[in-house]
Amino acid sequence: MRFVLASASPARRTVLRNAGLEPVIRVSGVDEDAVAAALPDPTPAELVTALAKAKAEAIAADEQDAVVVGCDSMLLTADGQVQGKPGTVDKARERWRRMAGTTATLLTGHAVLKVVDGRIAARAADHEATVVRFGTPTEAELEAYLATEEPLQVAGAFTLDGRGGWFVDGIDGDPSSVIGISLPLTRRLLRQVDIAVSDIW
């Protein structure tokens, strides 16, 4: 059975590879804004989980025998703001100036679909929440970080496993979730669809 990751994230792929899996990478192309707009006043946790489900389901439609995993991440700041990918240097700079020296919660939604003979035979979904304690980079450090463009395409404008790790003072929870895919949560969801993680290493 193929293990299909419905994500282009190199960080998620690396986490899975380091954990003994070689995922097949397929990008869903889901319109995230449309998924969000279709939900009646979702909580941040409901939103990331719904997005993960939509991504997994879009990929599962073209699979025969596979386990398909979709993920989505967002940062929930102390003032209640939900942040996805900033996309621009200006947005990333403004976010870092607000979150430096504070704590925030990284929410990662996961969906696991078991596809047998071209149909979804079982599904499971949930989210993981991990508290992130941010350091305070100097203006020069922040500008140098922004110049790498690393924070532009990641939830919350930071990475734990890249240059952004220099400015994270600590986390409370699952580090793999902050990187992009929670191994413990994925293992539990696989169990719910009757797959042991040791069977797909």
Rank of each mutant, 00 (worst) to 15 (best):
M1R: 03
R2D: 15
F3S: 03
L5A: 01
S7W: 01
P10A: 02
P10T: 05
T14F: 01
R17E: 15
A19M: 07
P23E: 07
I25H: 00
I25L: 14
R26K: 15
V27E: 07
S28F: 09
V30Y: 03
D33P: 00
D33V: 14
A37N: 03
A38V: 06
L39Q: 05
P42G: 09
P44T: 00
A45H: 04
A45R: 11
E46K: 10
L47D: 00
V48S: 03
T49K: 13
A50I: 02
A52Y: 04
A54P: 07
I59G: 01
I59D: 04
A60S: 08
A60P: 07
D62L: 10
D65F: 01
C71H: 05
M74L: 15
L75S: 03
L75P: 02
D79L: 10
D79V: 09
Q83C: 14
G84Y: 03
K85Y: 06
G87K: 03
T88H: 12
K91H: 12
L107Y: 04
G109P: 06
G109T: 01
H110Q: 04
L113C: 06
K114H: 14
D117Y: 02
G118C: 11
A122K: 08
A122P: 00
D126A: 15
T130I: 05
F134A: 11
G135V: 09
P137W: 12
A140C: 03
Y145C: 00
L146D: 06
L146G: 12
E149C: 11
E150T: 03
L152S: 11
L152G: 01
Q153A: 14
G156R: 05
F158I: 13
F158W: 04
F158L: 06
L160P: 10
G162T: 09
R163V: 14
G164R: 11
F167H: 13
D169K: 13
D169G: 10
I171P: 07
G173P: 05
G173L: 05
P175K: 07
V178T: 08
I179N: 01
I179T: 05
S182H: 14
P184L: 02
R187L: 08
V193R: 04
A196K: 10
A196R: 14
V197L: 15
V197A: 15
S198L: 13
D199T: 14
I200Q: 09
W201L: 15
